[in-house]
Design a protein around this nucleic acid. Structure first.
Lengths: 249, 249
DNA sequence: CGTTCCCTTGAGTAGTTTCAATACTTGTGG
DNA sequence: CCACAAGTATTGAAACTACTCAAGGGAACG
């Protein structure tokens, strides 16, 4: 992080070790400018054509889709995530991107990424990998929504968030600090905020998790993960199922 | 399709026009072998490390995730889809892949894809694009599960499937033929098969759609799409929001 | 011509939503 | 420093949506 203050968390805990120091430097140099976004900044909208992508350096962001006037949150991004690298290949986004809480982002020009594609095939594959992580998380969310009920859904989200924060080196023991409100948790879990409130009450009563004004307190992490049927393999962390070294070849 | 019998539907209706004839030939030549899979063939499993990827030439496949013994369907693949190109960058899959009905697939070696990455940056970007389409569809599914109730969810699925079949040139007017059962529709919509049966009954009673033994009959397509709040922009078809030609540069 | 898979229906229960009302927090301006 | 506003969190009751358990009907395949 001292060496790469902007992109040091990119793929940390995952495939970062497969990047050579030169590649890490290339990624760091890709960031042309940085910006601090205030809470709730809507910095990319569905349909917009983009010529740059954004890496999240500090803070949190959400991807949202609005259907028939009602907003859904379809993913959460944590520091180190290349938030809309998708836009490089897709050009046009199918969703909105919003900051929650204050966020620090870095901008990368698509023209520079094109050069990387042409000159750095191995790094290109790593960037590709990073976008597919999002897809894998999406799939797990689909499964979560298809199978679990409200309290388990939010437990799963908590467990996932915590794990992802750990991977990028900013997890804490027994608590997770987030800028999220109950309304936003509800939007992630596909329930009303009133029902989310009751689901959180249930987690509190059962001693699984205590979420108060953005901070989650957990005594027994294993219990939380079990309740939310969380298993981290879909996050492709270094600790999971053995590191696949073929990507480094 | 005469010229490219195996991969002629790859990105058809989407960015295929951005591929040069040479690139189309390269993709066609990537397929080393083909295979016919019987209904229900489980040809890739979560955690498995793969050295090849699969393109779906004919028929349908499902991606599934099993949580706590219960299976969820997290996506459907139609002809032309590069089913597990994900595996090239991810190496290890986070989900299972199963055929529904008889399916014809083609296999592509990862070593050959590596060459493409090194020598064909533009084509590499198109392949990348194709995997991100899946992610975009995943996001729409998340939104669908978060917001809609059973009958609308399945209407959305129907509308999407139909549209995707149209894009690759095998859609038919007023009907969609699929190998799907009510049980599988239920697994895609996160409801029990009994409830799916009632939801289909509702669509039938209301004259929106009639699904009988794998075949969907629809009188008024616009009505189906409206009921399921389906809007195709997330499928990145050529017809949507203007073609983005920058990818061809 | 029976077995198997797929589809259908009913009744009771559990989970979730809606509507309505009340409190707590935080930040702002007077 | 207090008052107020806006956002956030909580609770109750009735209505709706979906699940479970249970049973029966229909189509396809050998």
């Amino acid at each position: 992080m001292e060496q790469f203050p902007l992109t040091g968390r990119f793929l940390m805990g995952r495939l970062r070790h497969a990047m050579t120091p030169e590649e890490q430097q290339i990624v760091e140099d890709l960031v042309t400018t940085t910006e601090v976004l205030a809470d709730g900044t809507h910095f990319a909208r569905r349909g917009e054509v983009l010529d740059r992508s954004t890496i999240l350096i500090k803070g949190y962001m959400l991807r949202t889709i609005t259907l028939d006037g009602r907003r859904s949150i379809v993913s959460v991004q944590v520091p180190g995530d290349f938030v809309d690298l998708h836009a490089f290949a897709l050009k046009r986004l199918d969703h909105d991107i919003v900051s929650v809480g204050e966020a620090l982002v870095g901008y990368v020009l698509h023209d520079d990424l094109k050069k990387v594609m042409a000159e750095q095939p191995h790094l290109a594959r790593i960037l590709w990998f990073s976008t597919l992580l999002d897809a894998a998380i999406h799939r797990e969310w689909i499964c979560r929504l298809e199978q679990l009920q409200a309290a388990q859904r939010v437990a799963h989200i908590f467990a996932e968030l915590w794990y992802r924060l750990d991977m990028v080196g900013i997890g804490m023991p027994n608590l997770v600090r987030t800028p999220l409100t109950q309304v936003q948790l509800a939007e992630m879990c596909g329930v009303t905020s009133i029902h989310m409130n009751r689901a959180l009450g249930q987690l509190r009563r059962e001693g699984i998790a205590d979420f108060r004004r953005g901070t989650l307190y957990v005594e027994n992490r294993a219990q939380l993960e079990k309740f939310g049927t969380f298993s981290p393999s879909y996050l492709y962390g270094d600790a999971e199922l053995g590191i696949v070294d073929e990507l480094s070849s």
